[in-house]
Amino acid sequence: MPERKALQVAVVDYGLGNLYSVKQACEHVGLGAAITSSKQEILCSDAVILPGVGAFGDAMASLRRLDLTGVIRDIALSAKPLLGICLGMQLLMTESCEFGRHQGLGIITGTVERLQSSDKGGRRLKVPQVGWNHIWRVREWTGTPLGGLGDGDFMYFVHSYYVSPADTGMILSVSRYGVTQFCSSLQRRNIFACQFHPERSGQPALRIYHNLKALLEKAVS
C-alpha cells in the first residue's frame, strides 16, 4: 500500500502574526503544516489557515501585494476547510471601519466594528482586550470545529475589533467585553473563523485542531 503523506495545512504568511504557534498546534495534533505565501502551496494543501494580528488595512495591502486575495477566495468557494483566526477572521468580512474604511476579502457578508471602551458602570475598559474570556454557545457545536468544547470555556483573545456578520445564523459562539456582546466564532460550510487564538488557549482549545484533523481524515478516506 503506498504510504500517504501527512495531511498538509497551509498557514498563510503575509508578514504579520505569530504563525509559528499555529504551526506548532497543527503539528501537535499530527497535521503537517507549512508557513507559506506561495499560491501553489496554498492550492495544493488539504486545509488553509489565515492567521494574523495587526491592522486590517495593512494586512489587506499585504495580501494584495502578495497576490493572495484571489487564491483565498478560491479556497473559500471550494470544499477545503478555511480557518480564519483573529485578524484572519476579520479579513474574511466585507469591510472594516478600522482607521477609515477598508475593503476585506468579502467572503462573508458583514462588517468589522470596534470594541466599546466602557463597561456597564461607565468605567473605562482597556481596548485592546488582551486575555481570557468565555465563549458562549448560540447553536449546536456537535459536528462543528467547536465540537467537544464546553459552553463557557475560556479562550485567549487579543483584539480591538470584532466581526458582525449579516447572517447571524452562522454564529457559533458569542463573548462579552464590557457592554459589547460579539461574535467570537462562526461557521459557514467549509469556512470556520474565530476571534480567539485556539493555539494559545490551553489544552482544551486544541480540540479545534483535533476536529480539523478528523474532518480532513474523513474527507480523504
Binding site: 505569530n18 509559528y20 506548532q24 498546534a25 501537535h28 485567549y156 494559545r200 488557549s201 489544552q203 486544541l206
Partner: peptide, 28 residues
Amino acid sequence: ARDIFIPLTVGGGLRSVEDIRIVLRAGA
C-alpha cells in the same frame, strides 16, 4: 513553545526587528 499552549512573551537584549523575528520564530 512546543508543548505549552498559552501565550509566551520573551525579552532580554532584543535590539532590532531582526532580533524580534528570531525570537518569534523560535515560538514566542
